[in-house]
Nucleic acid binder design. Sequence first.
DNA 1: GGAACAAATTCCTCTTGCCTTAGGGCAAG
Length: 570
Amino acid sequence: MQVTKEDVIRLLEQISLYLELNGENPFKIRAFKKAASALEFEERSITEIDNFEDIPNIGKGTAAIIAEYISTGSSSLFISLQNELPNSLLELLKIPGLGPKKISRLYRELGITDIATLKAACEEKKVRSLNGFGPMTEMNLLKQLADYGKRPERFPLAYMNSWIEKLEYDLNLIESIETYSRAGSFRRFRETLKDLDYVIATNDPEDVRDKLLDMYEATEAVAKGETKVTITLPDKFHIQVDFRLVHPHQFATALHHFTGSKEHNVRMRQLAKERGEKISEYGIEQLETGKILTFTNEEQFYHHFNLPYIPPEIREDGSEVDLYTDTYGLIAEKDILGDLHMHTNWSDGNNTLVEMIDACRNKGYQYMAVTDHSQFLKVANGLSVDRVLKQIEEIWKLNEKYADIEILAGIEMDILPDGSLDFDDAILEQLDFVIASIHSSFNQPQDMIMKRLKKACENPHVDMIAHPTGRLIGKRNGYDVDVDQLFQLAIDTNTILELNADPNRLDLSAEFVRKAQAAGVTIAINTDAHRIQELEHIAFGIGTARKGWIKKQHVINTYSKDRLLSYLKN
DNA sequence: GGAACAAATTCCTCTTGCCTTAGGGCAAG
């Protein structure tokens, strides 16, 4: 059997889970987790690594386990762990409310090995007889088991977004809230979220707590304490929202703490410790004097450690604490001077040309590209040649009318399944901005997909490839792109790649867009708006770009109008 | 188990809140 790097990572993670169930030393458990993640970040493939001990966080013991696994296809440690505890127990760790201690007790005292036997034991009221368990625990377990498997572990940003708007509308109505902020993975613009986190500053926590609990009467409160309120939203998936209530002077440190990531917090705490200080959500404690420092904002908090303000989007694995500087040039929403991908009711958009133009003018954009679908996409009312020519004329007229914005006549043209393009060059050359994209035959093998993309990139009239991987977060993976090859194609043919800001897409992802920047690709961040409200999705695009450490200089729609026009001309 | 500092030992981020059950486990970033 050919062992892959993913196999090794999975092995180490499973070992770590087993040790947890066994109640092993927490640091040993973590050592395996750290080794797994060290391998994940390792650039080399498994055959290129001759000495695993060279990798930080992998020592003698783990290296021996890996070597055994690669040469024999199995691990004696893993086998002996499996003999001790059935594999199916690992699944129980995923059930909220069950941790290693409780699972271990259920197994040893009731012989529970999996979901089915746990459910049966709860129904027979056997569980309540165990030490540390009671009727409430049994009932809660049954509730969790009923949901088990039906609920995704994480939700796409787009799914959460409608809840977020509703929640914040309600939060704004609570007068005893001094201020509040999103926190957690949503504030960091992760593309999928497990729950929602808010930090609330108030001088009247009891009142805020009562109002929060009143907000959604139909839902149940998971927790309702002095400083923490957890509710589940009346959503079919029981989405959880955590509110942390703090006094206004604690707000900055609490916000930092609950924004995370966990790894970022660990790194910050290490820094503090080296200086004889201790960070908690309520402030920084100076250990010598016992004095607790608080701050008016997160900027001050970071400056206390002689660090620049580190934007939430890049607070992930902890390395940002050492890598990020004030002069990095990370892109910001204010840098965006135009949107180069949107639809009108000429194809499948909801608004008229004029409505879209007015909305872009209201956003203060210097330019915009109108890019309705092309004829192939019948379901989207794609434009025929005649209608394209008509729309170009219409846009010329509107350009004369509006002095404050440059309207580019564009198209989002399909790359057809056979690799040809939906319009001839004679049409394309009349357009100011040509997007090529794939909306069909997603299941083709990689070489065919790449052939299609190559054809598009090599056409001299094509300016940009939209949503380059075709994924829909949590719904479909997209087509089989060789992204490295696509980046090289884009560079060789001077083709822009899009970061599509639709929260369902975020395509390219933060990870890919970071690689694209490193390769030297020019990027555009566009909304692909189908209605004027969706022009606001640019915030998701910017968040994702920042998560990918994108510098302003690599993003074409930060160019001034003149610079953009001359770039497109060449 | 890994790594640092010293050569065998020590530390590893942390602490707070809440529920459920009777002291402790789990969850949160």
